[in-house]
Computed example of a mutant assay.
Amino acid sequence: MRKNHYFIAVPIPIEISEHLAWLQAELKELLPFRSWVHKQDYHITLAFLGEASSVQLEQVKQAMEQIAKSHCSFMLTLDKISTFGNRLAPRILWQGVKEEPKLRKLREDVYHACIDIGFSLDQRPFAPHITIARKWQGETEFALEKIRTMTAGKVENASFLASHIVLYQTHLERVPKYEPLLICPLSQ
C-alpha cells in the first residue's frame, strides 16, 4: 500500500495554467518526455514533506495559517524554461520564475517551520519553478537552447498574483494528482 505524501506550495492561477498548458501542448509534439503535468497540478513547491502523521499535519496547518497571516500577496513573473538532471537527458522540464525576495522569504518561513515540526526536507538551494514534464525518453540528446529559442516570449514575463499557500496531498493513481487539503490566503 502506498503512503500518502504531502507538500506545501504556491498554486498557479487558472489563467497562467491555461497559458502554460497551451505551451505544453506545443512541446508535447516535439519532446518525448514520459509524463506531462496536468494543468491543475502546476505549482511552485515551498516544502516537500513526504509522509506525515496526523499530528504533524495538524502542526503544519497551524504553522501555515500563521505564516500566511505574516506575508502579503505579491507578484511573480515567469522566466525561461529550464531543466533538472542531466542536461542531455533531463529528469525534469520546468518553467522558471523570476527572482522575487517575497517568494524567497515565504519559502524560508515555510521551510523552517516544517523543519521545526520534525520533517527532513531537501537541503538543495531553492530554485522556484513550475514542473511541466518528467523523464526524457528521447533517442537523441535534449537541446535546451533550441527549446528556449522556440518558446522565447510565449510565456516569459507573464505575471500573476501569489495570494495563497496550499497544503497538498499526492494521489499518484489519479489525474490531476494533487488534492488541496488546506488553502491559506496571504494577507492583502
Rank of each mutant, 00 (worst) to 15 (best):
T170L: 01
I8R: 15
Q137I: 03
D122V: 10
H129N: 11
T131C: 02
S120H: 14
S159I: 06
Y178A: 15
Q188F: 14
L121K: 02
A63G: 09
Y168T: 06
V97R: 03
I165A: 14
E15A: 14
P101A: 15
T45E: 03
Q24F: 00
F119G: 08
H171N: 15
I67E: 00
I16E: 10
R148V: 01
A89D: 09
P11E: 07
N4S: 05
I14C: 11
A162R: 07
V110L: 08
C114L: 04
L93Y: 02
H19P: 12
H38P: 03
E100P: 00
F33S: 12
E139A: 10
E141P: 01
S73R: 14
R87G: 08
F33N: 10
I16F: 03
Y178T: 13
C184T: 06
T83F: 00
R87V: 10
A68N: 07
K135C: 08
P128M: 12
F84M: 08
P101C: 13
L88K: 08
L103N: 01
K177P: 00
L88T: 13
S163V: 02
Q123V: 12
P125Q: 13
E173Y: 04
T77K: 11
A47Q: 07
I183V: 15
K28P: 03
S73P: 03
P11G: 08
A21P: 09
T151C: 11
L121G: 03
L106C: 06
L172I: 05
A143I: 02
P176C: 06
Y111I: 03
L182S: 15
I8F: 13
R91P: 04
K80H: 10
K135F: 03
P90V: 10
I12L: 15
E26I: 06
T149D: 15
F84V: 07
N157T: 08
F7P: 03
L144P: 00
G153M: 07
Y42N: 12
R34M: 05
F142L: 12
A152C: 07
D79R: 00
P180F: 04
R107L: 03
T83E: 09
K61T: 14
G50K: 04
S70W: 01
I14K: 09
L172P: 05
Y42R: 13
L161M: 11
V60H: 05
I12E: 11
D41N: 09
H112T: 10
Q137V: 04
E26Q: 13
T131L: 03
L46S: 05
C114W: 04
L20W: 02
A21M: 01
R124L: 13
A21Q: 06
P90T: 13
T151I: 04
K39T: 08
I44G: 05
E179L: 13
P185F: 12
S35K: 13
S17R: 05
F160M: 08
P185M: 10
I130H: 01
H171S: 15
T77W: 03
L23P: 07
I14E: 14
Y6T: 04
I132P: 11
E29N: 07
A89Y: 00
L27S: 06
I12D: 12
M75P: 01
H71E: 06
A25C: 02
Q56A: 12
K146P: 02
L23R: 09
V10E: 02
S70P: 00
W22F: 13
H19S: 15
E100M: 13
Q40A: 14
